[in-house]
Design a protein around this nucleic acid. Structure first.
Lengths: 347, 347
DNA sequence: TCATTTTTTGCAAGCGCTTGCATGCGTTAC
DNA sequence: GTAACGCATGCAAGCGCTTGCAAAAAATGA
């Protein structure tokens, strides 16, 4: 009855009360290596033993200790994701889609919030690396020098998402924000609007919003050979900013007849401002935004916007990484998911 | 020159290219135990050595391997958080506040998304436990039987947030949704509205929304001794649902003169419906919601609502846990953060 | 000055898994 | 019948850190 299985006796160091692999092994009457193999590569174990092991696992409610496994293999089923903001529904939709796909495959998401700062991003990357993640997912293509160095040194798949530019670190999943801005400008021009402007927010911090405004300005330059009117208030892209920015814009340029907002929240602020001032949409002023947030389809008038592939980015990222995990020689990819201009009542 | 320090020679098992504690120790001319102590409890190491160690760490850019540390101690600086939805801005605000506080103290957040399902929650809890988290943060007070058992078995601080009821597992941070519903009903009554109704969504899945509606119904019962009109469409609490639900409500009860929406998004849908139908707010119909989402303050008319302590919940949770981590005998707490009724133009 | 107490430090044994290598056994080929 | 080969299994050596214990060093007291 008494065996000398030390892992079974109470030692001072034994910390977790949970069942461990050795317990499973004992009950199944096999060695821990067999249990380990049953878990990681079932076909390498004979049917008989596999059944015994599965039964023992079931009986004990055994859950492997991630730390021990991670230490032994230097890799875990953790995906580290860094976004610039969580309260921005763009990224939460992406994360939600990504998490849904990953969780069903047994991967966990570890989340970091860079708050639109490259230094914060670097710090987060550093601490993430010590988790031996299966992959690292970043938002955007700009990173600090030393973050880049660390990233390149770590032999981990890396996905940059929500952008579409040159020289990705590894894999890139997103769309061109410049093209979004161009499309918005062209749309307003097609609608016969000629004095059009662009309103963005925090353009110094939100590189992608800035790219959208750049694209917009490009078209203006090409078609009118004049500089575009770009308003870029400092604060966050929210409704209040949109109201104030539009008000200021109209004061400065009373003849403006079309506005591209770099974000739907700003546009909603613009809509509220127009409602208050009795500005008719789209006759007096056409509006188009970016994001296709929930309200855009239902407001009065409904709001034209450009829909980014929020969830699709998450899904494609997960899909790519899963393929990569299961097959060594999947190469890095650059996936342009495009966007969709949705013309509605406001333009 | 040649030493037999095996951790320095290339072994077949050596997996990570990163500097490890032994490297730091060698450069600082101390043992790994000293390095470990400098990291976890600096005052227990003499000033001289501490300086040497710090210099070596700096020089190598050493970042400890979380797996190894976690395996040795059975605890990590990971906070596992489970929310029912990420795209719901309530929870993202909470998480953002929590993450901000935790990250500055070197804790990471691991995120799970239960999608309002107790089974999903249970599965996530199971896999989280194998990470030896420093704490587990759950949304709400209802959990599956076996999840509860696991939770109680794990000797880990647990916070349930966003609710305020009896028998918390450990610590509870939130507010009473029933009281929210009561406040909303009373507010509408005070405004002279007598035929008031409540619109919620997915009440079968979203227990907290159901509690708000219950509170509302309670007041109706107490004051009119009639049953309350509660509309509870199946789908998610979004704008479209709000539009449709209000439309249906008015068809069924043409004399309704006040509505409490269990969520501001629903209310915005209601507002859009009224705008389309020319229903005057608040004269014909008073509106009040829950959430104080961004648009409520700025729409036309501005929307009355009840502001939940979104960010405060995250901050208080982090604060409580940090106190607990640094001091063994901090007892579980029940923190009621209350809410604020914000009367605006719509009521 | 020497004995005693109090700090600092290092040694080495884990933490719970994975995996290269060796072993044992059933097959197939000769 | 024996040799050669596969395949399934077990053994045991790590993975990189923490920490109890003991030794060494420093501080204190007599």
């Amino acid at each position: 009855m008494s065996d000398d299985n030390s892992s079974n006796s109470i030692t001072t160091r034994r910390k977790t009360g949970r069942a461990q692999m050795a317990d499973v092994a004992r009950i199944a009457g096999v060695s821990t290596s067999t249990v380990s193999r049953t878990l990681s590569n079932p076909t390498s174990v004979s049917k008989t033993l596999r059944a015994q092991v599965d039964a023992a696992i079931e009986q004990l409610g055994y859950v492997p200790n991630v730390m021990a496994g991670g230490l032994a293999t230097s890799r875990t089923r953790t995906i580290c994701v860094i976004v610039p903001s969580l309260s921005n529904s763009f990224f939460s939709a992406t994360i939600e889609a990504m998490a849904a796909r990953f969780e069903s495959e047994g991967y966990q998401i570890m989340l970091g919030n860079s708050d639109y700062s490259l230094e914060r991003e670097e710090a987060i990357i550093n601490s993430f690396l010590s988790w031996s993640p299966a992959a690292i997912v970043l938002t955007g293509q700009s990173h600090s020098r030393s973050a880049l160095k660390r990233l390149l040194g770590a032999e981990v798949p890396i996905v940059e998402m929500w952008e579409m530019g040159d020289n990705p670190i590894d894999t890139l999943v997103g769309f061109s924000h410049r093209a979004v801005g161009r499309a918005a400008a062209q749309h307003l021009l097609t609608r016969g609007k000629t004095k059009i402007a662009c309103i963005g927010a925090a353009l110094d911090r939100d590189r992608r919003a800035a790219q959208r405004c750049d694209g917009f300005a490009e078209v203006i330059r090409e078609t009118t050979s004049r500089a575009a009117i770009i308003a870029g208030p400092k604060g966050r892209a929210n409704i209040e900013q949109g109201m104030n920015a539009l008000e200021a814009l109209i004061v400065a340029h009373p003849d403006v007849d079309g506005v591209f907002f770099s974000n739907d929240a700003l546009m909603l602020g613009g809509l509220f401002h127009c409602q208050r001032q009795g500005i008719r949409i789209p006759q007096d002023l056409a509006l188009i935004g970016f994001g296709d947030l929930d309200f855009a389809a239902h407001s009065l008038p409904s709001l034209s916007t450009i829909r980014p592939p929020k969830a699709e980015i998450g899904a494609a990222t997960a899909e790519h990484l899963l393929r990569r995990f299961s097959n060594e020689d999947v190469p890095p990819e650059t996936i342009d998911l495009g966007f969709e201009l949705i013309a509605r009542g406001s333009s």
